[in-house]
Design a protein around this nucleic acid. Structure first.
Lengths: 348, 348
DNA sequence: TTGAAAGCGCTAACAA
DNA sequence: TTGTTAGCGCTTTCAA
């Protein structure tokens, strides 16, 4: 394993500028206690020399930790890679480093990752994955995070977590409602849901939105088949198979994310079931390929890249007394995977 | 910006174990000069206490820098996010941190990112993007990297760079040949290429493979239309429009990556041109959605996740006298976007 | 407003 | 095999 070698140090900049180490440090970190004139000169020389502070020394000396730890379920899931992209953009603007770690949708592993990031002394932690309904997990995470925050660490999450920290709140409930309403307006009454893993708040909230829309129209929920599978493409395939088998009269399938919707479409294609003529399909998120599927996918757009930007932006602000919440908004994007409900023969 | 607070230190572990700081350090970093018995005890206690070394202190003190800098063009491009995923996996196994930075396919910006990573004192640098044909860029990067390596830094790249470092070599040329051969065997003679930005070695190599296949069959290359656009979905759309306009007799389009192929398919759909009946389309990479497009995409599979794993694995080995090269292999995946060439009326 | 000096927690000589 | 100690490059009191 390599060691970093000696390079340009702050003392070099200080000498060139004819000031002390302390003054140079103050000038570059923008603290006051330096005359504007000296500060400008130091910064000028620093720039000329191409000086970049050693983040290890800086952090060790008790300065700001300039690294942000980002926990995602899986970076090669487009939902998360788009969020990561937003985080990386802001980090680049702010001169921060982004460390990404995978949790693989395993709450216990995620907790370990969290502890590890804290032990690694990152300054900011961003949790991008869904929250969990499991009170034990949330409680343990909460304990870790509040200790971290007491020591000056900043935290922001994306999604509904009961962690008492700043949060970007995806419009899950409203989005679910929008999807269900769209299908109802098309005349669908035999709707099934391909849902992600039970226990994720994201799944629960989107589902709640769907239910609310049905209830609002006085439709019974008893008949709403909800199949819980992995929150992935493969989960979508499995869910679709099960729906076709157990509820052959279904005319519309709501997948609770686009990955699952892709799996659903793939299964319907394999069964040669025409979409949307026989069955309509909707997804959630609007990942960038959603528009390129055939048929192109009707879905709810969440501004993932912005959500990443927002999360880091929140974490960069000083901590407030009450946790901040930033709703994301959403847009129903109607494409070709939805159409009018098939009229079944009477009794159908 | 937050500061990390005081936490469990090595001295705490050492005291608990009744040994000196130095002994504890040696035991935990697996160096020799400690009796096996003592080492075991120290490790045991460290684990019980949940001790994690402060990476800032460790690096500052001249130890191994445990962070790896990964430069990608764009994380939310599936090609790169799959590579990143592989890197992150290995890093997690080795207890390393991964820092991702975007270069946005801008060679100058990429150079800046590189300098920044070096200045940040990462221990390992991984460059995942294509190399550039521009000698200036490569020369400057080479200079930076060799200085970095002299100081003990390790470097590995994915793709053909003339950087004199360990490299994972995607099977670009052979893959290009495989695609062209596949189309030729289907009877296509009017082939056009939707190529990425000129100046990328990846583009040049894939194109070289295509040319080689044509040459091998004694087909003239003069007539091969090659349209250079962005190496993205949008680039694919633009290229396809241009091909349709300038070469309406085309029966097959080779897109040099899947992103472009998606753009091509989208444009053909917009023009209501049936694929593959009227025009066949192939891509390159086999990103995970390739199988879910409609028609599903014939493409060349590169093992992206493994490539990420390989790159970090290479960088973890001690530097060798001659740079290592690891070919990736490739697989032609024939799906539904290719079919026999349309027989045109005589003279066509 | 500036400078001198004491650490931050660790690794790596050097001694024992 | 173990311990002692001098830094790594920075920030931050404390004095001037």
């Amino acid at each position: 394993m390599p060691k970093p070698g000696p390079r340009l140090r702050l003392i070099d900049v200080a000498e060139r500028a004819g000031v002390s180490l302390a003054t140079a440090s103050r000038a570059l970190s923008g603290r006051d206690g330096v005359s504007e004139e000296v500060a400008r000169r130091v910064r000028q020389i620093s720039r000329e020399l191409g000086y970049v502070a050693n983040p290890y020394a800086r952090t060790l000396a008790g300065g700001a930790s300039s690294t942000v730890g980002l926990i995602v379920h899986q970076v090669d899931d487009p939902y998360f890679s788009e969020i990561a992209s937003g985080v990386i953009e802001v980090a680049a603007e702010e001169g921060l480093l982004v460390q990404i770690s995978h949790s693989g949708r395993d709450p216990d592993y995620e907790l370990r990752q969290l502890r590890h990031l804290i032990a690694q002394r990152v300054g900011i932690i961003l949790i991008a994955g869904s929250g969990y309904d499991d009170p034990r997990i949330e409680a343990e995470a909460r304990t870790e995070l509040s200790a971290f925050q007491k020591l000056g660490g900043r935290v922001a999450v994306i999604g509904r977590h009961s962690l008492g920290v700043d949060a970007v709140m995806p419009d899950n409930e409203a989005g679910g409602r929008a999807l269900a309403t769209h299908l109802l307006e098309l005349g669908h009454r035999r709707i099934a849901v391909a849902a992600g893993t039970a226990g994720l708040t994201t799944v629960a909230d989107r589902l709640a939105g769907v239910s609310a829309a049905l209830r609002q129209r006085d439709l019974s929920l008893d008949g709403l088949p909800v199949v819980h599978c992995d929150f992935t493409r493969d989960g979508g395939r499995v869910a679709a198979e099960q729906i076709l088998r157990d509820h052959p009269e279904t005319t519309a399938i709501i997948a609770l994310n686009d990955a699952m919707a892709i799996g659903v479409l793939s299964t319907l294609r394999a069964h040669r079931i025409p979409v949307p003529d026989r069955i309509s399909v909707v997804g959630f998120d609007d990942v960038s390929v959603a528009a390129d599927l055939a048929p192109s996918l009707t879905t709810v757009r969440l501004p993932m890249t912005d959500m990443g930007r927002m999360a880091l932006t929140l974490a960069l602000k000083p901590r407030s007394v009450r946790p901040r919440r930033r709703p994301t908004g959403h847009t129903l994007v109607v494409r070709d995977s939805t159409g009018p409900a098939l009229r079944l023969p009477a009794g159908g």
